[in-house]
Simulated scan of single mutants.
Amino acid sequence: MKLKQGIGVVFNVKDINRTEKFYKDILGIQVERQSGGDEPDWLMATLGNGVELMFFEGEEQIGRSPIIVFELEDGYMETVLESLSEKGVEIVNPVSEAPGGWSADFKDPDGHPLAFYQLGSLPLK
């Protein structure tokens, strides 16, 4: 497994407009609205040093964030998840589509939510 430099922090929020106003107007962070195509809009802020904040609206996820997201380089994400599972890591959500790529959620030993993200189309085995 090879991780890219940088880290993404994903927040699940109740109201995307309220969140945008808070981070832009109150904290002064440059937040950009992203079009989700068929999916609802979401927000992204690049803080520098490879740190990105992403905000998605969705009631079912409230209270289960932020999630630290590690971006994978080339490789087959399902193989990485199989390896983690064999080592006793709890896989919460298998590989699924995400904006611009693929993601999968898992937990650390204390139950903290973590995820992998891979840009583009899912590589073949």
Rank of each mutant, 00 (worst) to 15 (best):
P99S: 09
I29A: 01
S96W: 01
K125D: 13
P40H: 08
T46K: 15
V31Q: 01
P40Q: 10
Q61G: 05
V51M: 11
L84H: 10
L3F: 14
E59Y: 04
V10S: 05
G88S: 10
G75E: 06
G50M: 07
V95L: 00
D110Y: 08
N12T: 12
A104L: 05
E57D: 05
E82H: 07
D108L: 12
D25Y: 02
F11W: 10
T79Y: 04
G48L: 04
P109D: 06
G28R: 09
V80W: 13
S65P: 01
I29G: 01
D110R: 03
G58Y: 08
D15V: 02
K107C: 10
Q30H: 09
N49W: 00
I91G: 04
E73Y: 03
F106P: 00
K24F: 02
I26H: 06
I16C: 05
P123D: 14
Y76P: 02
M54K: 03
F22W: 13
I62T: 00
E57A: 08
E78C: 00
D74R: 15
G63M: 11
F70H: 14
L119P: 00
E60K: 15
I16W: 01
Q118F: 00
D108T: 14
G100K: 10
V92R: 07
A45H: 00
L119C: 08
E20N: 08
G37T: 02
G8S: 07
F11H: 14
Y117I: 02
G75W: 05
E71Y: 13
P113G: 07
L72V: 03
I91E: 02
R18C: 01
E73K: 15
G50D: 14
I7S: 12
V92G: 00
S103Q: 13
G58H: 06
M54C: 11
N93Y: 05
M54W: 03
L53G: 00
